[in-house]
């Protein structure tokens, strides 16, 4: 089975690409050379078994999480479960909603456990786990539509995360993405304590950006597209027609209200919601810690 997974260093010589089945990871570690090498080796070693671990309890991971229900056993699976369980009472959610973030987190944890790194990121298809050593910081840039990296337009803003901020996970969800969404957001990006938490919250908030019954929105049962989808017969968004600004505002209002509710219990730190080019940021941009500042230098451009 191990031969299946691919591990390679990208042409820049600094980033590692890990791929196995549907998992695609790009990671980078910063620190002393020997520490980077050690981190890479550990990441690769940890990675090659992750998919098998997950698949061994895949049916359970595709089932709705209910309070008091069966918990999974695997380390990654437990991370997934823990990330989605806060939503289980009020929402339909399965551990799969946090799979990408949980995998990213797991790989990052393996690296930082053995290597002394100043910074590191593990980007699992857009869901990102961060390591920021004390005094270090990351500048992150945000683009608009995840499956449509446009040019100048793609950069909505950037922000600086430093080691004092409680953010180590970033995730994005939207109906255009690789996984299905019940909502109409083009992209909902979440900053949270961990990547798995961000991943789960992105799913919930993206689902909440919606205009139920609106004629311009097309749906199909998830099962029709992908027979083994964890969403089963739930209707997933397949197209969103042009919306008036009032409608965009209404849908974003639902989503941001949902996001607001996740801030107090610490489920997320911030969210950026994008619907047809209109962006709503939660908490509002005045928040000193999470300000989206377009003045910040970002490598999307630089």
């Amino acid at each position: 089975m191990r031969a299946r997974a691919q591990v390679r260093v990208l042409p820049d010589g600094r980033r590692l690409h890990l791929q196995d089945g549907p998992i695609d990871i790009v990671l980078q570690a910063l620190g002393a050379e020997d520490q980077i090498r050690r981190a890479h080796r550990t990441a690769a070693d940890r990675f090659v078994t992750v998919l098998d671990e997950l698949c061994s309890e895949l049916p359970l991971l595709r089932e709705q999480v209910r309070l008091g229900g069966t918990e999974p056993d695997g380390i990654v699976a437990r991370r997934m479960f823990a990330a989605v369980v806060p939503y289980a009472e009020e929402n339909f959610i399965t551990p799969m909603a946090a799979v990408a973030g949980a995998v990213a987190e797991e790989i990052l944890a393996a690296m930082t456990a053995v290597a002394d790194l100043s910074r590191a990121y593990v980007n699992d298809g857009g869901d990102i786990a961060l390591h920021i050593a004390s005094g270090e910081r990351f500048v992150i840039g945000m683009v608009d539509l995840p499956d449509r990296p446009t040019l100048l337009g793609s950069l909505l803003g950037s922000m600086t995360l430093d080691s004092n901020q409680p953010v180590r996970g970033i995730a994005t969800s939207g109906w255009r993405g690789r996984s299905f969404s019940l909502g109409i957001a083009d992209a909902v990006t979440i900053l949270a304590k961990t990547a798995a938490m961000a991943d789960a919250a992105a799913t919930i908030v993206a689902n909440a950006v919606d205009l139920p019954g609106h004629p311009a929105i097309s749906h199909i049962a998830a099962r029709e597209l992908s027979p083994d989808s964890d969403l089963g017969d739930r209707l997933v968004t397949t197209a969103v027609g042009g919306l008036t600004s009032a409608e965009v505002s209404e849908a974003l209002g639902r989503g941001s209200a949902c996001a607001e509710r996740l801030i107090a219990p610490g489920l997320i730190a911030a969210a950026a919601l994008n619907l047809q080019g209109t962006i709503r940021v939660v908490p509002s941009v005045e928040s000193p810690k999470m300000a989206l500042s377009s003045g910040e230098r970002s490598l999307a451009y630089a």
Binding site: D24, Y121, N123, G126, L130, P146, P149
Partner: peptide, 11 residues
């Protein structure tokens, strides 16, 4: 890959 919506800068 599915593009990452965030770009992480580094040295």
């Amino acid at each position: 890959y599915k593009p990452a919506p965030f770009i992480i800068s580094s040295e």
